[in-house]
Design a protein around this nucleic acid. Structure first.
Lengths: 230, 230
DNA sequence: CTTCGACCACGAGAATGCGCATGAATGACT
DNA sequence: AGTCATTCATGCGCATTCTCGTGGTCGAAG
């Protein structure tokens, strides 16, 4: 999962970014409205944390521009505690949630989790697929109750697949959500990680869709194929 | 749009209900956890406003029960301003948003609007034709609920046909949409794929229109019309 | 009604290229 | 210094796709 943090306070920005990375997200940072808008417009984020008071371009404006351009990713805005009119303006501009400053970083993490979860259409903080259980709150995964030992990239891969269960996910999409801006897109890294993951969670769970990418299936979904081969 | 308000403070409950009705929603009211849970479990709401501190059954518990039973409607929880741990707990229990008391009614309305707007975005993109069901988002297709194993070209073909249901689609048109620019137009690949597809989804669904191309038809619509075309 | 030409279905073999495993090289963290 | 995660390159196996050839079906004209 890839997240953009737009916040001009350098300390706060770093603080957030570190907490998010700690929790297993990939994080891009922007320090003014201009830069934030540019990144959010060009890169595919799973969520954005956006400060309202920003140099160069106001947070609300940034948000409106994104929404106007059809960007639909969940956005969490940061406002001063006493400016409740900002919150309403922000929400009407298309924000999905807000947190008032000063805040507990923990709270922001919970909100982000909730936003990502909701964007993927899941109600609870645990996502289950057959024997695999992903705990987004604790950033852990288990198979048949046994905890998996995953590297950070393996976890991000699994997480992304499970948040998009049933969908076929392209290699490019995976790369874009598992890495930040600059990454050499021509390589077979993803395939390697898929291989490794399969070795850990069992081969049948991640299905490869030739020419398209990979797909994780909800539980009893694909029993047999009809008159094809296998 | 139908909304459930679960709040034990009679005044507050009425205040919310009136504002919501004013805004054009249909509103049901519950005044304790038990009643709230019962209604939310049995009736189809587009959104729920749920207080955390409730007699009979705690709001978090109510929410967990709903989510455990597969209810996925958006839920906005109300908490006391100083209990931020409640918010985190609530969000992790599956709440989609929260508002801290005391709040401006206007703000609650904005949130509800946002929640409903967002929930509408989760409609699955499916096209159905008789027993065949095509899910473009997941890149998969089922016949009578059984998942098909299609290669990427077969899928593209089916997809194009189903997107133009009822129309006769020429071979050239198909070629142009299934391949990029230059492709040897003198080849019978399309016929081969149509054959393969028919074998997988059943022969009656793709009708051949001699001299023109192929057509997919919802069943029973125009059973093998001999005397002309549409 | 018959015949002819064009169009279509289908099977089987051949070529293409995708995806996977593997192992070595690089980099990060302790 | 050593371990572990990550990245990259290579070659093989096989699903997929394409070509080709034969036989069948349809429609129109004589």
């Amino acid at each position: 999962m890839r997240i953009l943090v737009v916040e001009d306070d350098v300390n706060l920005n770093r603080q957030l970014a570190e907490a998010l990375k700690e929790a297993g997200y990939v994080v891009d940072q922007a320090f003014d409205g201009e830069e934030g808008h540019y990144l959010g417009d060009g890169e595919p984020y799973d969520a954005v944390i956006l400060d309202i008071g920003l140099p160069e371009m106001d947070g609300i404006t940034v948000l409106e521009k994104w929404r106007g351009a059809g960007k639909a990713m969940p956005v969490l805005i940061l406002t001063a505690r006493d400016r409740w009119s900002d919150k309403v303006a922000g929400i009407d501009a298309g924000a999905d949630d807000y947190v008032a400053k000063p805040f507990h970083v923990e709270e922001v993490l919970a909100r982000i989790r909730a936003l990502i979860r909701r964007a993927a259409g899941h109600a609870s903080s645990e996502i289950v697929c057959g024997p695999v259980r992903l705990d987004t709150k604790a950033s852990k995964a288990t198979v048949d109750g046994v905890q998996l030992k995953l590297t950070s990239h393996e976890f991000r891969l699994l997480s992304y697949l499970m948040h998009h269960m049933g969908q076929a996910v392209s290699r490019t999409e995976l790369v874009e959500h598992m890495y930040d801006q600059d990454f050499d897109r021509d390589s077979n890294t993803i395939e390697v990680f898929v291989g490794r993951l399969r070795k850990k969670i069992g081969n049948d769970l991640i299905e490869t869709v030739r020419g398209l990418g990979y797909r994780m299936q909800p539980p009893g979904a694909a029993p047999a194929d009809k008159s094809g081969k296998s």
